[in-house]
Write a protein that binds this DNA or RNA. Structure first.
Lengths: 126, 126
DNA sequence: AACAAGTATACAGCATACTACATACTTTAA
DNA sequence: TTAAAGTATGTAGTATGCTGTATACTTGTT
């Protein structure tokens, strides 16, 4: 069981951001019953997993609410199994689309590089 | 040579957004010299290319300023060739990173799906 | 001629995702 | 025991990326 400082250290995500994510409903910690002198919140390793997932998903352009959908489908049992599967399938389609877009960009940029490199050669060969 | 309405129609990007992109320096149109009765701005097909690139890049999580970097390296000859190549190489690395992240997410989500589907089978087989 | 539709400009407002600050309390280490 | 570091809560501010509104002019259509 980890405190927020620990989460931040392990993921590199600022404490303020972690609190913001928790407020946004992406995950939650709990106070320990045995501790009565404070209201410190403890997090289990599942939260680390979720934070790492959030990092990845954000890096590829998913919004927090999109990420929340996946996490809910993932960990919460409140929605029906078929609904969970549907959410995940939709997300897989989006991911494939993004991969294709990235591949297209890669091709485009590589081509552009070749053009630049060639024009160098040409101008240098003059 | 196209007017802004045409750009919007061809790309699906709202006119307001296109104006915002232009103000952000992602591209620019020009008034036609032969037209003196108005100050309408005309755009060539390069702008369409750029808009499509912006759409893709945004979809995979690049910011407008990151996109601007690429477009500048791409079309502007004001920076040195080696600097252009460097920008594009950096972007290619970022793209590969994103692709890997997407693949990791895909794996994770697929695994999660299998788990859900199995637990269904189990509960149904009881 | 007149009315709809398109264009330009400027500025305000909004949603998302943080980020900083202030206050107050708790824990830890010297 | 006291100072540093950590935690909780709340609120305000910021950056990015739009989105809407108002005003005024131009063009195209009937």
């Amino acid at each position: 069981m980890k405190l927020i400082h620990q989460l931040s250290k392990e993921t590199g995500i600022p404490i303020g951001t972690i609190r913001f994510y928790e407020k946004s409903g992406l995950f939650s910690g709990k106070p320990k019953k045995e501790v009565t002198t404070n209201n410190y919140v403890y997090y289990d390793d599942e939260v680390i997993e979720k934070l790492r997932f959030i990092q990845m998903a954000k890096a590829v352009g998913f919004t927090l609410s999109e990420i929340k959908e996946v996490i809910d489908a993932w960990y919460q049992r409140q929605i029906s199994t078929s609904a969970q599967i549907e959410v995940l399938n939709r997300k897989l389609i989006q991911i494939d689309k993004k991969i294709n877009e990235l591949k297209a960009m890669k091709k485009q940029i590589t081509l552009c590089k070749v053009n630049i490199e060639n024009s160098v050669t040409v101008s240098e060969s003059v």
